[in-house]
């Protein structure tokens, strides 16, 4: 899987209330949630972003609530993937379970500015900054079980395939 897109950069500890404020949790339709994606981090975000763009976060991205509405909102908004220094654990789990591609990189955040273009090569485990001369950045490998989760299309499909065997 290769993902190429323009990045939107956010800071450390982007919490799930910033990704999808709790006042919208009376919505569970993905498109309805997407309309408010990142609203409390950047109220103009949904006006500025284009489908296929990439979110770049700092430390502890997705901390706070367990709400799966957060990765659902990001995915439904058309964000291709999220790259952060580290993810909060429930957000990390949720993303693998529901099929939002996420990648860890401690280096990328310090090397790019808003609007930069990057290419994530998930199979090779590399991130390339488009137009930069530097060597591609390495993504730490994902455990085989979690690679299988992604390959199967999320947790429920994974369980269904396991049962079919």
């Amino acid at each position: 899987m290769k993902i190429r897109g323009r990045i939107w950069k956010f800071g450390d500890n982007i919490d799930t209330d910033a990704i999808i404020p709790a006042r919208y949790l009376n919505i569970w339709d993905p498109q309805g949630l997407a309309a408010h994606c990142m609203e409390d981090a950047d109220p103009e975000f949904m006006k500025k972003m284009r489908p296929g763009d990439i979110l770049v976060g700092g430390e502890n991205f997705g901390c706070g609530s367990s709400r799966e509405h957060a990765p659902i909102a990001i995915k439904a908004a058309g964000i291709a993937c999220v790259v952060a220094k580290r993810f909060a654990r429930i957000f990390y789990r949720n993303s693998f379970n529901m099929g939002l591609p996420i990648f860890e990189s401690t280096e990328l955040w310090g090397l790019v500015e808003n609007g930069a273009e990057i290419e994530v090569d998930a199979d090779a485990g590399l991130i390339r900054i488009v137009g930069a001369a530097a060597d591609p950045l390495k993504i730490p490998p994902v455990p085989p079980f979690m690679q299988q989760l992604i390959a199967d299309g999320g947790l429920m499909n994974h369980l269904a395939k396991g049962k079919a065997k």
Partner: peptide, 8 residues
Amino acid sequence: VGSTDLAA
């Protein structure tokens, strides 16, 4: 956990 985890 998340909602998909709860479903599983």
